[in-house]
Design a protein around this nucleic acid. Structure first.
Length: 574
RNA sequence: GAUUCCGUAGCUCAGUCGGUAGAGCAUUACACUUUUAAUGUAGGGGUCCUGGGUUCGAGCCCCAGCGGAAUCACCA
C-alpha cells in the first residue's frame, strides 16, 4: 500500500527513535496519579497536591497540539476525561549540556497523535491556563498516521471532521477528535445502568437467553438465517427474546429481564440498524396498567439521572418525561388525528377508509396491519411528548391478552415519544388454547404472503399449557431511547460500530494480488500506475509500462536504478 | 428500492467559459523560554472516487459503476 508523505516521515522518525535506543512501544506500565479534569475543575486541590515542590504529578495522554516557542513549548495532552496543557522547557528537561532529549526527541521525533507520559508539577500560566510543568517525559506509543487537525478556540471548533463515513467506519478517530462523542456513549451506558439498578432494586433477575434459535418468534420481523454444522440444521438469530423469558416465568421466577441484542433482516435507516438492543421485562401477577406506571417511573428516572431534569431537548423539541404521561386508546388516537372512528369497521370497510386517508394497503394485510398502517402514518409522527397508546386490536397482537372489557381488543400499550415508538408492552396472553388459535391465525397471514407473520412455537405452547401466571411484559428499544436522551438524530450516533457497507479496498497489497514476484519499490510503483493484480499486469503493453515506471521513478525521486525492459517483460510473462 | 445532492492534498474546502491543480490547518526547514485557532519566513505534498465516451485538450460535459448524505418507500 502506498504511504502518504506524512506517513513515510513518521515511519522514519520511528526508526530514528529505535536507533537512539528509545523503545517507541514500551512494555512497562506507566503510573498515572491524576486526571486532566481534576486539574481543570479542581485546580486548587490539584495545586495543593501536585504544585511546585509538592508530590510529582504523573500523567499520560495523547498529544493533540503543539505550540513551539523555540527553547520551550506548549502542548495539549488528552486523556479519557479531557485535555490539559503541558509546558516543556529545554533547560529543565535537559539539565546538563546534552540537549538531545529536547532538541531531537521532543522537537523532531514527537508528533501530534503520539501518546506520551509526563512528570512534573501543576501550575497556571500567565494567561491563567492550568498546566503541567514538565520535568521529564516518555514516549509511550508512536503514532504512524496523522490525525485530522481540529482546532478550537472559546468552545468554537474549526475544521471539525464531520464526514459520517469516516466517523462511523473509524470510530476510534471520531472518539479521539470529537470529545462529545465519548459523552454520548457514556450517557448510553448510564441509561442502561439506571434501568438495571432500578429493576435490580425491585428484585427482578437479569437473565440470558439464546440468540441462536431454531424458531424465531416474539415479534413481527424477517430474521437472519444461519446454519449449525454438527446438528446440520438451520438456526435463526433472534428477533426478540419474549418467548424464552415467558418460559422462565412459567418456571417460577416472579420477574426476569434481559438487555438483548436482537437482529432483524430489514432495511436500514437512521432509525434502523440490523442489530439493535432491547430490554425485555416480564413480571408475574401484574397487568399492563401496572406496567405503564413502571415505564413512566423508570424513564423519568433515566431523564433525571442523565440530565438532572425531566425535560430533555431533542432537536427542535423539548420533551418532558415528568409523570404522568398522556394516555390515548388506539382508536381514540386515530379518531383524534383523522376524525374517523374505525373501531367498528370490518376489514373491507377499513381498507376503503384507509384509502380515503391516503394510506396504502395491499392484499396481504389483515385488519390489524391496516390499523397499524393508519396509526403509523397519521398519528405516530405527531406524538412528540411521551404518550401511551393503549388497547390495540387483537389481530396485530398475537401474544397479548384479550381486553378484560372491550371485545376485539387486547391489553397492550406502546409509549410514543418524538414521533417514534420507544416501548411496547402488554398483559401477556397465558391462555394456551387462545394462544394456539392466535398462532394459527398468524400462519394464515403467512400463507397470504405476510413475510413477518409469526411461526407456531410448539414448545412455547407446551410451556404455557403447564400454566403461566398472569404476567405483564415490556420491551424498550435502548437505541431509540438513547437517541432521544442524547439528542442524536441518527441511530448510528448511539452505536459505536453501526452496520455499514464493506469498505472498498483502494489498493490491494501485493501479497493477495499475485504480484509477489515484483520487488520493492516497483510493486508500489505499479500500484500507483493502477496495476494491482496479475490480470491487469497481463493486459499492459510492456514498453508502455517500462516508460511509465521510469516516469514514476523520477516523480517519486526513487533512489534505485531502473530495471531493464527485459526484466519488466519477465515480470509480465511469469 | 426511488429521487436529489456530494466525492479534489492527511483534514476542512475553493476551483470562473473545457486550456499546466488552489487556500487554511496538518507536514518539512529556520527563528522564537508562559503560548493557546501561538506567530514570522521558506519549502514539499495530488490516481481530482473508478471505468468508458465526446474533444486537439476533461477536475469541469455525457454514460456506467462504486461510496456517502438527505428525503421518500420498506421497517410495530
Amino acid at each position: 500500500m502506498a504511504l502518504s508523505e506524512q506517513e513515510i516521515i513518521r515511519r522514519e522518525k520511528l526508526n530514528e527513535l529505535i536507533q537512539m535506543g528509545i523503545n517507541p512501544y514500551p512494555a512497562e506500565l506507566y503510573e498515572i496519579n491524576c486526571s486532566s479534569t481534576f486539574i481543570q475543575n479542581e485546580y486548587e486541590k490539584a495545586e495543593e497536591k501536585f504544585g511546585q515542590g509538592k508530590q510529582e504529578v504523573s500523567f499520560a495522554g495523547r498529544l493533540m497540539s503543539i505550540r513551539d516557542m523555540g527553547k520551550a513549548a506548549f502542548g495539549v495532552l488528552q486523556d479519557s476525561t479531557g485535555k490539559i496543557q503541558i509546558y516543556i522547557k529545554r533547560d529543565e528537561v535537559c539539565a546538563g549540556d546534552d540537549k538531545t532529549l529536547y532538541d531531537v526527541v521532543w522537537k523532531k521525533l514527537t508528533d501530534i497523535g503520539d501518546i506520551i507520559g509526563v512528570k512534573g508539577y501543576v501550575f497556571k500560566t500567565k494567561m491563567g491556563e492550568p498546566s503541567i510543568h514538565v520535568s521529564s517525559f516518555h514516549i509511550l506509543t508512536k503514532s504512524l498516521r496523522p490525525l485530522p487537525s481540529v482546532k478550537e478556540k472559546d468552545g468554537e471548533v474549526y475544521d471539525a471532521v464531520i464526514d459520517p463515513d469516516l466517523r462511523y467506519r473509524q470510530r476510534y478517530v471520531d472518539l479521539i477528535i470529537n470529545p462529545q462523542v465519548k459523552e454520548t456513549f457514556r450517557k448510553r451506558t448510564q441509561l442502561v445502568n439506571t434501568m438495571r439498578n432500578y429493576l435490580n432494586e425491585k428484585g427482578y433477575l437479569e437473565v440470558e437467553t439464546p440468540i441462536l434459535q431454531p424458531l424465531y418468534g416474539g415479534a413481527a420481523a424477517r430474521p437472519f438465517k444461519t446454519h449449525h454444522n454438527t446438528l446440520d440444521m438451520t438456526l435463526y438469530l433472534r428477533i426478540a427474546n419474549e418467548l424464552y423469558l415467558k418460559r422462565l416465568i412459567v418456571g417460577g421466577y416472579d420477574g426476569v429481564y434481559e438487555f438483548s441484542k436482537d437482529f432483524r433482516n430489514e432495511g436500514m435507516s437512521r432509525f434502523h440498524n440490523p442489530e439493535f438492543t432491547q430490554i425485555e421485562l416480564y413480571v408475574a401477577y401484574k397487568d399492563y396498567e401496572w406496567m405503564m406506571n413502571l415505564v413512566e417511573e423508570m424513564i423519568e428516572k433515566v431523564a433525571l439521572t442523565l440530565h438532572g431534569s425531566t425535560v430533555v431537548r431533542v432537536g427542535e423539541n423539548e420533551i418532558d418525561f415528568k409523570r404522568p404521561w398522556k394516555r390515548f386508546t388506539m382508536y381514540e388516537a386515530i379518531e383524534h388525528f383523522t376524525g374517523v372512528n374505525i373501531g367498528d369497521m370490518d376489514e373491507d370497510t377499513m381498507r376503503k377508509a384507509a384509502a380515503a386517508m391516503g394510506v396504502e394497503t395491499d392484499a396481504t394485510m389483515g385488519r390489524g396491519k391496516i390499523i397499524d398502517e393508519i396509526f403509523g402514518s397519521k398519528c405516530e409522527p405527531h406524538l412528540i411528548q411521551p404518550t401511551f397508546i393503549t388497547d390495540y386490536p387483537v389481530e396485530m397482537s398475537p401474544l397479548a391478552k384479550k381486553h378484560r372489557s372491550k371485545p376485539g381488543l387486547v391489553e397492550r400499550f406502546e409509549a410514543i415519544c418524538n414521533g417514534k415508538e420507544i416501548c411496547n408492552a402488554f398483559s401477556e396472553l397465558n391462555d394456551p388454547i387462545d394462544q394456539r388459535k392466535r398462532f394459527e391465525e398468524q400462519l394464515e397471514l403467512g400463507k397470504r404472503g405476510d413475510e413477518e407473520a409469526m411461526q407456531l412455537d410448539e414448545d412455547f405452547l407446551r410451556a404455557i399449557e403447564y400454566g403461566m401466571p398472569p404476567t405483564a411484559g415490556l420491551g424498550i428499544g435502548i437505541d431509540r431511547l438513547s437517541m432521544i436522551m442524547t439528542n442524536s438524530p441518527s441511530i448510528q450516533d448511539v452505536l459505536f460500530f453501526p452496520q455499514m457497507k464493506p469498505e472498498t479496498i483502494d489498493s490491494q497489497s501485493a501479497a493477495d494480488s499475485g504480484l509477489t514476484h515484483i520487488p520493492s519499490p516497483w510493486n508500489d510503483v505499479l500500484a500507483r500506475l493502477g496495476i494491482t493484480n496479475r490480470v491487469q499486469l497481463k493486459e499492459v503493453n510492456p514498453n508502455k509500462l517500462f516508460n511509465d515506471m521510469g516516469g514514476m521513478r523520477k516523480k517519486l525521486k526513487l533512489d534505485v536504478s531502473m530495471v531493464s525492459l527485459d526484466e519488466v517483460k519477465k515480470w509480465i510473462s511469469e
